[in-house]
Each structure stands twice: as C-alpha cells, then as structure tokens.
Amino acid sequence: MSATAAPAVLARGESPTRRAIRRFLRHRLALAGFLVVLTFVLVAILAPWIAPYDPIETSWSRIRRPPSELYWFGTDENGRDVLSRVIWGARASLMAGVVSVVGAVLIGVPLGLLAGLAGGWVDALISRVADAMLSIPFLILAIALAAFLGPALENAMLAIAITASPIFVRLSRGMALDAKSTDWVEAARSLGNPPWRTAFVHVLPNIIPPLLVQSTLSIAEAIIAEASLSFLGLGQQPPAPSWGSMLNSAQRFLETAPWLAIAPGAAIFVVVLAFNLMGDGLRDALDPRADRK
C-alpha cells in the first residue's frame, strides 16, 4: 500500500477489468475452455458456409451410413449428414444457452438488487418467491414451464430463462446486502445519489465479477436444459437440427448406428465442459482476494 509502489510516471492506471483479463490469460485450462467456446460460436455463426451438406435434406440412398470420407460423422435414419446437423445444431444450443441466461440475468439481477437494497417486505416477498422456485429441481421446473408454454425453441428459452433467474436473484441480493454496509455505498448516498443510481452506477459494477462467473456456469446448465427439452420434443422442432432431438432419434439405433448418438453427445459434453472451465478460470481471475499481495 505504499505510495511509491505505483510508478508515478504512468498517467493512466490499470483498471480492475484489465487486471482480471491479464490474470485470466495466464490460466491455461480456462483459456482452453475459452478457445473451445469461441470455436463453437464461430461454427454456429458460420454454419451456412462450413456445413458440407444441407442439414434438412433427406436421401433414401444414404440411410445410416457409418462415418466415412464423404460423411465424417455418418448419416442418420433419414439420410441426413450428421456433421452438418451437429454444426447447425450448435446454433440452437448456443443461442438457447446465451439468450436464456441473458434473460435470466435481466430478470434476476434487478430484482436481486431491489431486494438487497430496499430490504423490508420487498426483500421478503422477492426472496420467498426465489426460494420457492429454487426448491423445485431445475430441469423439472424448466420442463413444466416449457410444456405449459408449448413446444418451440423460443418457449424453451423463455422457460429456461425463468428457471435460471432465481439463482441470480439470490446472488445479486447477497452481494447488494454486502455492498450496502460498505462506506462507499454510504458515501454515494451522502453525495446525493438517488437510490437507482447507487444501485446501477455503484453497486452493479462491483458485483459484476460473481455475476459473470455465475452466468458462464449457467450457460452450461442452460445448454443441457435445452438439449433435454429438445430430447423430449419441447425445444427445437423437427426437422430443424438440435443436439437434444438428434440424441432422441439416435436412441433407437444405439446398437446399429452408435455414431448418431456419439456426435451430438460429444458436442454437448465438450461445450458444457468448456463453459465450466471458463467459469472456473473467470472465478480465479476475478477473485478479489488475489488483490492483496
């Protein structure tokens, strides 16, 4: 904490964000996770250009072909190229993962901040609803909501967003409670900040690190949820490709054509693992305890 520790010549200091990025880049597994995620994102975006075949076009002449030079991951029971379907399926999975978590954050964080900073009956009401939702297993609640909303990818995303939001309520409420007792939040008030400004300009930026970590881990969970809903026919509707629905149709041919299950299964596994590694790395990089040298 000595004054001389900071080189006085630099006019601009290192921001907490830059410092976290620097730490993250040193974390090898996390970086690997990040690169895998980045690859899948690029694949999803570039699907129309990199998929070797049309993912929907059926052909009676190439049903359940094993992997070959022409069809790297084989073909399915309707003669569609599995690789092309996995590539297009990345769109549904990643979009469902990201969109539903963004939705969960948009629902959960403002409610959590409100509960933590306002306190009283507002806090009691919001917290009890969140607790009640958390008491129901994640997938069961998502399935129930998706079934209620009707089978469509958009509805599945909405169902996952709602199901994933209570964890963000709880997290941001706890962090807001913590921040509320600090001097800098009291200072914000004493300077004349209105409550909403204290919440969004002072408290929110300070609780972003744990929210970011939780979001990354929640995306992994949301991808699994989307795959599960699609597996049950509640998500992406056929013939549009989705990893979950591919697994569903593959189960009938597990013994005769295992490649139908391996490719989408591996894709889910790798993406979820990558998101989790990235989340762990972010947690380490953003750990405030690492600030104390």
Binding site: P16, T182, D183, W184, E186, A187, A188, S190, L191, H202, P205, N206
Partner: peptide, 15 residues
C-alpha cells in the same frame, strides 16, 4: 459532505 474514517473503504473500487 462527509469525510469517512477509512479511506480504503470510502472510495468506490470501480471508479
């Protein structure tokens, strides 16, 4: 205005 006791706690770390 108020000046706080602990200058390590009274400044918003992200400003």
């Amino acid at each position: 205005q108020l000046i706080f006791q602990d200058p390590f706690a009274s400044l918003d770390p992200r400003m």
